[in-house]
Design a protein around this nucleic acid. Structure first.
Lengths: 253, 253
DNA sequence: CGGATTTTTGACCAATGTCAAGACCGGTGG
DNA sequence: CCACCGGTCTTGACATTGGTCAAAAATCCG
């Protein structure tokens, strides 16, 4: 099959940084999997992308992939695990900018200030691909598909960042969070109705800009109303339609 | 002078869409002014960028440059006036995504969904430059400076969108809003201490996610404390250092 | 001048934050 | 296997910011 072929050439283990030899899965979860498959790619271009990427990890929960203030040099594609990007403001409040699942690209918000504007922290066992940004940009001038994919991802991140904005109620925020996570898991082949939250309540709270206690209370209320079932960090979605109705003001726009 | 030279070549009035013949000012306020001056540009590339741009306007206050849901085709550089980007959610709440001054690029958040995710509304007499995005992207593959500038602007917009997030107090939000606006005006050669707000209180409120009444009250309180002086839509900043102190949790991170 | 819109101001109230205490949970070591 | 410990999570009581409603004042504009 053509895709396997590409994957094998692309990720032939000349850089044996990681010990998992599953190239197929590697490429599958790669941020550029889509564009690699879609675009008409010649061998030399693939080779270049290959040379560009550095596999890094695993990171343990709590370890940082990059830190606020570090000079910008590369973007990272999450390959396995979950990453949170966060920053701590001057008087100690934490703001979580996002949770990033395999296939997502982090560090794009660092291009402009030319320094990472946040920390990227592993929430569980995380592996990433590192793309030197100057090299990636150069490659993008020769491969329109890569450029287009970068534009799309940057643009999407603008939209995602704006999701948080808006003065929505705690219920709306929680519902939108659960629905969004469910959809993203589903896109990656995990069941959409049984979520395992890899982040603490406090992280969710700092992401949604509510108090941690509020997260607890809202989840409890959702459960009491039969919308979800909560067991620690395992949440199953029982009535997704109703959850969606609550989240609609945020999601549907 | 070299810059004048470039400006004249670049914007020679072969496309007399607008009746103001001030090419120098045209280029000055153009989104790509910086990159045009910076990059080593050959005539043919300049010509191509020239062919690409379409001058459009003036729009009267309230007129829309693009509408939520329209198919994405172009980004727009604000040339004169102020534009707000906003969207109205399912139950009528308005959310203002941003206010855009001359030199800023709007529509970048439309690349990914391939449709404008918001309305762009003129707040006063507005003129814009339209850049067909497919053409711009193609040009960017040949002109790394243009590509880089697009990456930077996209990346900056991610950061700006995240500014709104965070659970900040109304005081912090207002202070940050005033400081930010003041800085952006200053960058454009306007006085930093006397602002004319082109947007209604309600717009500010919907941008900062507070009630319009709260905007009134906080401005009043800032004035009572001697930080600013308010006269309708004219605001003068009296103690910028103290304003900055209030805004610090938002601005300094 | 007169009507419409925007802005201000006051009174009240609800959503949510804060504080504090206790329950739970997972890992560690005896 | 159990006890302990640190961190996480939940729950309750209370405080407070900021929203809502309503009316008056100011401003705009024809």
């Amino acid at each position: 099959m053509a895709y396997d072929d590409i994957a094998r050439k692309h990720f032939a283990p000349s850089h044996p940084i990681s010990d998992d030899g599953d190239e197929h899965h590697f490429c599958n979860s790669c941020a550029f999997g889509a564009v690699c498959i879609a675009g008409g790619i010649d061998k030399s271009a693939l080779n270049e992308l290959h040379c560009l990427v550095e596999h890094s990890g695993p990171y343990q929960a709590g370890e940082k992939i990059f830190r606020n203030g570090e000079r910008f040099g590369a973007v990272f594609a999450v390959r396995a695990g979950t990453v949170k990007t966060q920053l701590v403001d001057i008087d100690g409040r934490e703001l979580v900018l996002g949770f990033h699942l395999p296939g997502e690209l982090i560090g794009l918000n660092a291009i402009h200030p030319d320094a990472y504007p946040c920390d990227a922290v592993a929430l569980d066992a995380v592996e990433v691909c590192r793309f030197s940004f100057p090299a990636l940009a150069t490659l993008a001038t020769r491969m329109p598909g890569i450029q287009q994919e970068l534009f799309r991802r940057l643009s999407r991140d603008i939209g995602n960042a704006a999701l948080l904005a808006g003065d929505y109620s705690a219920d709306e925020r929680l519902a939108a969070f659960l629905i969004g996570l469910s959809q993203r898991y589903a896109e990656r082949g995990f069941p959409a109705d049984t979520l395992h939250l890899t982040m603490a309540r406090g992280d969710i709270a700092n992401y949604l800009c509510v108090a941690a206690e509020t997260v607890s209370r809202v989840l409890r209320r959702f459960q009491d109303h039969g919308l979800i079932h909560v067991d620690g960090r395992n949440v199953s979605i029982v009535k997704s339609a109703e959850l969606f109705t609550i989240a609609r003001p945020i999601l549907q726009r």
